[in-house]
Amino acid sequence: MSWVDIGALADIPPQGARVVKTAAGCVAVFRTADDQVFAMDDRCPHKGGPLSEGIVHGASVTCPLHAWVFSLETGMAQGADSGQVATYPARIEGGRILLDATRLARRVAA
């Protein structure tokens, strides 16, 4: 595992998200109300909606296009919908957000 610094926690508003650009598309990085961070593909498996633009509630996000709800922890679609979004390890260290670069790189290869 190798961690890459993508920015400060303060760069993301609480209950908000920002994206990180990668060669294989954007990764959405979410910050919850209690300052946990989560990273997952910024693409809803339903119709490709940008999940980073969804409303963050608890540890879930609701896709802005058709209101599918995903767990930020597992990437699983909630409720009646089925589908999963790839998630990536993320953590906070000294106010900085770190993503697992190895996992992100593997995503590119896939």
């Binding site: 993508i6 920015g7 990180v20 650009k21 992100l104 590119v108």
Partner: peptide, 16 residues
């Protein structure tokens, strides 16, 4: 202004 852009661009690093 910052919020409208990606917070980081890893596309070059990831391409290695």
């Amino acid at each position: 202004l910052a919020q409208w852009a990606p917070m980081a661009d890893l596309s070059l690093e990831a391409a290695e």
